[in-house]
Nucleic acid binder design. Structure first.
Lengths: 326, 326
DNA sequence: ATCGTTTGCGCAATCGTTTGCGGTTAAAAA
DNA sequence: TTTTTAACCGCAAACGATTGCGCAAACGAT
């Protein structure tokens, strides 16, 4: 197999300089239309494809963005990845996927990896151990924009793409009390997460407003939730339940089977089609979040390279509609 | 923010040459122990981190491997990604994730992207439109190993990591007939896929052996399967069903609810915990497949750079155990 | 003391592109 | 006809790291 053609080869073939080729390929005004065409034709003929690595070295760019997530499970993140990949590709970027495994050191190492590979931007959903963001804070100063999504932290200087967690949880629980539930279970994820705190706050607010008591159950993984729920349901008989995520909803599927309990959740939309009980859910689209976050990131990258002035961090809040199933 | 330290900075600080630094950092025998230590200390002091892009340009490597999959859904692939990411990271590689969207042109473009970014190896699950692999065939000649997993093609010169599709399907359906099912439904995915053909062949063999009739239903996505199954079940009353994938199993969850039909499937293990009916399944671990495929790829990369002789393509077949739930 | 080896390090080219600057030519202005 | 001004293009230095080769000092052996 012969090596890939470089701009050198096409320069040699046309007996012109590499700089002319480099410019011609990108329609630099210094190069005549005719020459440009000649160059491009020859490029096609030689099946030339630019070497991003070399260009990246020179331009200190890589056409790569990174996505850092706590852990790849079947819940939520796959659709995020899908959305991000789509937008990235449309904009000529490739996507590096990294897991932090909900570990701060790991997250730090991932950031370092991003630097080593000169990624042009970072999309991150924070680990549940991340309570400060020193490891991220001066990334923008080195020209690497950061966008948070889903799991963020308060008062960060970064853009973030989220839903109004508090309000959604509030609406969901309010819905339960309006349906007349008197004995409600609120099922939440990892307590350290801001997202959990916010959703809990919303839920509590709805309960206080309606003057209804409720039991709170925390579980940070599918398996733990399965056990916790089975355990809880063996001794309690709630007439209403709020599940803050798809993972919890999936875990509830079997324990909740045949319990005749009203269920409201927050979901990406697929799990409700699979589980065992009728429910309402607020559609929290991972796909949309991924697309929005990636768009925002790409935009930031463009701004910083085009030298546009830095607009302040933006908080993009997806609106969330209620669906009901069965 | 000051720029990242380079080996030049280390060299300057120590008043030695960059070549010495480069060698010292990697314990080249030409460099004395003392000097090595000096260099490393200074490197740590300056918080030096190598620039993979620059090194990659020179060494024509990138420390990046690519994973190309048809489409990221919540089924199967998330665990594959997880497994691949883990092995990649352990071996100092980063992971580029690309989708082909089950489109051949898209797949070709993805391969090109891989070349542009000088990835060191490619893990691929073929699109269902891919009936020949001309676009992959001379990748190894350019030094880029390719490993197939899950969705492959017959007589390819590449390593592949799969399960024994035919046998697993055979076992599964045999199980149904042994349980006394007389009216079996065989639910399969996209007909173009080799994986489907193989599983179908296994299923048919079991049926022929037992002299039992069955109905075959094909559906290539979750939504289509939901409809096809609801439709099928409205006019048929199978006493046994074989579902060849998690996606189909999930789609069957609600239509099959309360039908009292024996179900056997092939699954990554999570969906069975969520769905609505008791079932047996053959555990087809995406995580394991991802890890094995990535290991094989990393090994190939090592071989090709170490100049070891090319061992012939290997077909790695995971063994699949039966689980039963509920 | 002399010659041959190591040992330890630096020089400079190289990977493929980009880009500031300088130079040439031809067309336009004077 | 001379000068100005574009329009085009090439030279060469980057980007950060790797690596073949050369060269000096230090060592051992004769």
């Amino acid at each position: 197999m012969q090596k890939r053609a470089t701009i050198k080869d096409i320069a040699k073939a046309l007996d012109i300089s590499v700089s002319t080729v480099s410019r011609g390929l990108r329609d630099h005004p210094d190069i005549s239309k005719d020459m440009c065409q000649l160059i491009k034709d020859k490029a096609k003929e030689l099946n030339y494809h630019p070497n991003h690595i070399a260009a990246g070295l020179r331009k200190r760019s890589s056409k790569i963005i990174a996505l850092i997530i706590p852990e790849i499970s079947m819940f939520f993140f796959p659709s995020v990845i899908k959305g991000v990949e789509e937008v990235a590709r449309e904009n000529g970027y490739q996507l590096l996927v990294l897991q932090s495994n909900d570990d701060l050191e790991h997250e730090k190492r991932n950031i370092q990896m991003c630097l080593d590979h000169s990624v042009e931007g970072i999309l991150i959903s924070l680990s549940n151990k991340t309570s400060n963001i020193d490891h991220l804070i001066n990334l923008p100063a080195s020209g690497i924009p950061v966008v948070f999504f889903d799991k963020s932290i308060e008062n960060s200087p970064f853009d973030e793409v989220v839903i109004d967690d508090e309000d959604v949880a509030f609406q969901a629980v309010k819905n339960l009390v309006h349906e007349g539930c008197k004995n409600i279970a609120i099922i939440l994820g990892n307590e350290n997460l801001l997202i959990t705190k916010r959703r809990e706050r919303g839920a509590r607010l709805a309960l206080v407003n309606a003057n209804v008591e409720a039991t709170f159950v925390y579980a940070e993984s599918f398996n733990k939730a399965q056990i916790a729920l089975a355990d809880y349901l063996s001794s309690h008989h709630p007439d209403g339940m709020f599940l803050m995520s798809d993972e919890l909803m999936a875990a509830a599927s079997q324990p909740l089977s045949g319990k005749g309990c009203l269920v409201v959740g927050i979901s990406d939309g697929m799990i409700p089609e699979i589980v065992n009980f009728p429910l309402k859910y607020f559609y929290h689209s991972g796909f949309e979040i991924g697309k929005l976050a990636a768009s925002k990131l790409v935009h930031r990258i463009l701004m910083s390279t085009e030298g546009g002035q830095n607009t302040p961090a933006e908080r993009i809040i997806l609106d969330v509609k209620m669906h009901s199933l069965h």
